[in-house]
């Protein structure tokens, strides 16, 4: 079965690069450009994994995370936070709120991010 990844990211360039590569890797990528849309899509589509940016319009990534983890339907979906915020405080907060992994975009190559996503999907 083709796995479904929800990619919540407001930056078009990243939607294109990472999104295209994930599609090429055989995943179905559904995209949301703001936090609110991301949360609604997660409820409606029940994806296998969520990639979540933190600085998002309409609803901040932390709020999305909180909402997803307090909703029975979306509670168990693994969430990878993908951001350029890198303070210890942000990392701790995201993990406390239930994120599976925290990745700082600038520190990883695209290939490494794809590998982390595969690992989170248990592949």
């Amino acid at each position: 079965m083709q796995k479904k990844i929800l990619f919540v990211e407001d930056e078009a360039a990243l939607q294109k690069t990472l999104g295209d590569v994930l599609e090429q890797e055989g995943y179905r990528v559904i995209r949301a450009l703001d936090g609110e849309a991301g949360f609604k899509m997660a409820q409606a589509e029940n994806p296998d994994l969520i990639l979540l940016d933190l600085v998002l319009p309409k609803m901040h990534g932390f709020e999305v995370l909180k909402a997803l983890k307090s909703d029975e339907a979306t509670k168990s979906i693994p969430i990878i936070v993908l951001t350029n915020l890198e303070s210890m405080g942000d990392i701790e907060k995201a993990l406390e709120l239930g994120a599976t992994t925290y990745l700082v975009k600038a520190s990883y190559s695209l290939e490494e991010v794809v590998n982390k996503i595969k690992k989170a999907l248990g592949e």
Binding site: A13, T17, L18, D20, N84, K105, A106, L110, E111
Partner: peptide, 23 residues
């Protein structure tokens, strides 16, 4: 420097895709 990081990582990933020959 924070503001520069976002466009730089976009550039880095786009270039990585081109060099990898994926497409």
């Amino acid at each position: 420097s924070h503001q520069l990081r976002a466009p730089l990582s976009n550039l880095k990933w786009a270039l990585e895709i081109l060099i990898s020959g994926r497409f």
